[in-house]
Amino acid sequence: MRTFKVLLRKEFLQIRRNSFLPRLIVAFPVLIMLIMPLIMTMDVRNVNVAVVDLDRSATSRRIASHIRASEYLSFTVATSDFQLAMKHLEKGTADAIVEIPSGFERDMAAARPERISITANAVNATKGSMGMQYLVQTISRTLSELKAEKSPVGTAELITVQNRFNPTLNYRHYMIPALMIILFILICGFLPALSIVGEKESGTIEQINVTPVSRFTFTLAKLLPYWLIGLFVLTVAMCLAWAVYGLTPEGTVGSIYLGAILFILTISGFSLTVANFSETMQQTMFVMFFFIMIFMLMSGLLTPIDSMPAWARKITVVLPPRYFVEILRSVYLKGATLAELWNNYLALGIFATLFNTLAAVTYKKQA
């Protein structure tokens, strides 16, 4: 125990004496949680719309008015020349063209209107897809209002939409838990590995190798500071999510911390295993970056797992972040309990045991 305390004190002294690392540990989660939710959003705004009005009726003017009033759409130009609107689309000053055919209002009254045509710039697939949805919703709402004015029961009154767990469809509420996990991956994944390899490059690890310190004691002394740093980062991130964005967990905070402890054990054990097989900082960073990209892209952090091909969904079963993503989002947004998520906790526990055992076994201690 005395040896372990000495090693642990050495690790904390190394972190404190590093002029950059303590600032990174504090500044990184603050900047990520303050800035990234504002940037990483699937809410598409400022979709530039050109309206080709061939009808020139009260209905077409009302459609154009609703497009102007939308917070997601920006009215670019109104014209009766489709080719002129196409030039705007080609230049990039318009993202979509709404063409209202001649006689639309008259034909709508006769219940046989020609369809309104929407032409979109799909170079940016996300903006094109979401922008078209906003446009269709805006035009549909306008036409529903017009029908409701002529009918005692509007079509909108016949439909009820209820969004569970995220009533406002706020994309930040979906992304903030993912950003917390990215913080864990970067801080508790990179830093332990770089710490080991840094000692290899400086030669100080040789001094440890000639001592009677066991593999387990050395590995635990290396990991414990980063476990504490990870929990500190989680606390800061949760406080910022509450103070800045008003997002608080629907479930218990204890469920989140339990999942975080298991995930930190997993990712830090994995990083030490990589470091044990690496000789230089460059080698470690390349290997870690490779796996971290897989973790971020295939674990459900940024894209739903159900949207992936079948072969990719099978691979995600062996990716630890997948299970913590499910825990964090379910507890934060749905209020899920430990009993409901036991399989995810069990998977993280297995991964934590596996990677930390590998880290201790693969550490080559040479006297």
Rank of each mutant, 00 (worst) to 15 (best):
R2L: 12
R2E: 13
F4T: 02
F4G: 00
E11A: 06
E11W: 03
L13I: 14
L21T: 12
P22V: 05
A27Q: 06
F28K: 04
L31A: 05
I32F: 15
M33V: 00
I35P: 14
I35Q: 10
M36D: 06
I39E: 09
M42F: 13
R45G: 07
V47E: 09
V47F: 02
V47P: 10
R61K: 14
A64N: 12
I67W: 03
S70H: 02
E71T: 08
S74T: 13
S74K: 12
V77R: 15
S80A: 15
L84T: 14
H88Y: 12
L89P: 11
E90P: 04
K91T: 15
A94I: 05
S102T: 09
E105N: 00
D107W: 01
D107N: 01
P113Y: 01
R115E: 13
T119Y: 09
A122Q: 10
V123S: 12
V123K: 12
A125L: 14
K127M: 05
M130E: 07
M132Y: 05
M132Q: 14
Y134Q: 10
V136Q: 13
Q137P: 07
T138A: 03
T138V: 02
T138K: 02
L143P: 00
E145L: 07
K150W: 04
S151D: 13
S151I: 11
P152S: 02
T155Y: 12
T155C: 09
T155S: 15
L158D: 03
F165A: 02
P167W: 07
T168V: 11
L169R: 05
R172K: 12
M175N: 02
I182L: 15
L183S: 02
L183H: 00
P192A: 01
L194E: 08
S195M: 09
G203T: 00
E206D: 14
N209H: 12
N209M: 15
N209S: 11
V210P: 03
T211F: 05
L220R: 08
K222Y: 02
L223I: 10
L228Q: 04
V233T: 11
L234Y: 01
A237T: 04
C239W: 14
Y245H: 01
G246Q: 08
L247M: 11
L247A: 06
L247F: 09
G251F: 04
G254C: 09
I256C: 03
L258V: 08
G259R: 00
I261N: 08
F263E: 03
L265R: 05
I267H: 08
G269Q: 04
V274R: 04
A275Y: 01
F277G: 08
S278Y: 05
E279G: 12
E279W: 09
M281A: 11
Q283K: 03
T284G: 10
F286I: 14
F290P: 08
I292W: 04
I294L: 06
M298P: 06
S299H: 01
I305D: 00
D306P: 08
D306F: 15
M308Y: 06
P309K: 07
V317E: 15
V318D: 09
R329I: 01
S330L: 06
A336Q: 04
A339G: 10
L341Y: 01
L341F: 04
W342T: 02
W342P: 02
L346W: 07
A347S: 03
A347T: 01
T353L: 14
K364I: 00
Q366A: 05
